[in-house]
Computed example of a mutant assay.
Amino acid sequence: MSPAQRSAPAVRRPLSRLAPPLLLLLLLRPPAAAGDCSPPSDLANAKPALEDRTNFAEQSTVTYKCNEGFVKVPGKADSVICLDNKWSEVEEFCNRSCDVPTRLLFASLKKSYSNQNYFPEGSTVEYDCRLGYRRDHSLSGKLTCLQNFKWSKPDEFCKKKSCPYPEEIKNGNIDITQGILFGSSIYFSCNTGYKLVGATSSFCSIGRDSVEWSDQFPECQEILCPKPPKIHHGMIQDEESSYAYGQSVTYKCMEGFTLHGNSSIYCTVKDDQGEWSDPPPECKDTSQIYKFSLMVQELTTVNVPAAKNPAVPRATAGFHATSTPKGGGSSPSVASVITLGCVAGTIIIVTIILFKVFWDSGKSGSYYTHENNKALNVKFHNLTVTDDAAEVRPPGNL
């Protein structure tokens, strides 16, 4: 037996000792193509984006992604290539960096840094002042990425511009308590008796070349009252063509009339509208009041005739005459006293009625005519006194 024949059983013996499942897998596994690569390993501060692949053919490319807190260094490769069962070499390309530079209200990042996302320790950035601000060169306009990878605290190296100082408004006021710097507002108001025509406020905003007020300043227009009302049987003294706030008018009645109410009223303002302080007065006929006083005077002078005989009057029947008191003289008769009392009571009642009638007619603006007065005179002058002066009766009741 040749040496080759004696060694054959020794080669077959290890294969026969493999477990049946493993042997089946080896038989069914497709042969790997020459040059294929297995998944690439992790790199410092980066991991490959495998997308669930386990086998990579020759010339395949895998890109790495930086771990959280690290940024790709610009200009360095971040991928590898499969070359003959091996991955190509790659340098470390992920490093620590500050975040995007701080956004400032008064300044914007210069354009040269707008597309940059890698800011290692010690790197600096610069800013330009925004519109409405001016550069303060005494302060640094740079920010630095510190050792803790935080940006340094910025100085306020851009200051607000100032709008022109507002001019005064005639008959008005300007509230500038907020100042006149960019973004500030001012407020307008008018003096009493004037109304605002235009904007109530304005703010310092960006203009063509610098900053300016957003709205034109308003005007304060004088408020006028309407024409003063006319009155019957009266006039306005020294009447003018127009009346402004605080001005007054004075009324005067014609001869024979009396003024009732305020003789003067003045112009006031309500809700930016002019109005008069009170209603105008009234002129009432003085002659009616004069006639009333004459009538009362006539009624109080009615003559009562003397008694014709000392007989006891009907109104006093049952009373007995008394003797003349000692010391002489005569005492007034009971009939005379009663008669005078009746006349006085009648006069008082008539006076009250007439006063009420004339008061009501005066308030309503109407008065008795001459004929009415005449009828009243006839009615109260034709009172009849009985022969014994005991009663006063109107005509027809004798």
Score class of each variant (00 low, 15 high):
M1D: 11
Q5S: 14
S7M: 12
R13Y: 07
P14E: 08
P20W: 08
L25Y: 11
P30N: 06
P40W: 02
L43W: 01
L50A: 04
D52T: 04
N55D: 09
T61M: 09
Y64T: 02
N67L: 10
D78H: 11
D78N: 13
S88W: 04
E89A: 11
V90F: 07
V90S: 08
V100R: 15
L105K: 12
A107C: 09
S108M: 08
S108I: 09
K111M: 03
Q116H: 09
N117E: 14
F119N: 10
F119P: 05
P120N: 04
E121T: 14
S123Q: 10
S123M: 11
C129R: 13
H137G: 10
H137F: 12
L139Y: 06
T144P: 01
F149A: 01
K153M: 09
P154N: 03
D155G: 05
F157Y: 08
K161I: 07
S162K: 13
S162H: 05
Y165G: 04
P166D: 02
G172T: 05
N173R: 07
G179R: 02
F182Y: 15
F182T: 04
S184V: 02
I186K: 04
N191F: 00
G193V: 05
G198R: 04
G198A: 05
A199V: 01
S201I: 05
C204T: 05
C204R: 04
G207H: 06
S210W: 03
Q216H: 10
E219Y: 01
L224M: 09
C225T: 10
C225S: 06
K230Q: 13
S241H: 10
S242G: 07
Y245G: 08
M254C: 05
G261P: 03
D272R: 10
Q273R: 11
G274R: 06
K284E: 06
D285H: 00
S293R: 13
L294H: 08
V296I: 15
L299T: 02
V302I: 15
N303T: 06
P305M: 02
A307I: 06
A307C: 05
P310A: 09
P313G: 12
R314S: 11
A321P: 12
S323K: 13
T324I: 06
S330Q: 12
S333C: 05
S333I: 01
V337R: 11
T339H: 02
L340V: 01
T346K: 10
I349Q: 14
I353W: 12
W359I: 08
K363G: 01
G365N: 11
Y367E: 14
H370D: 15
L383T: 12
T384D: 07
T384A: 01
A390R: 01
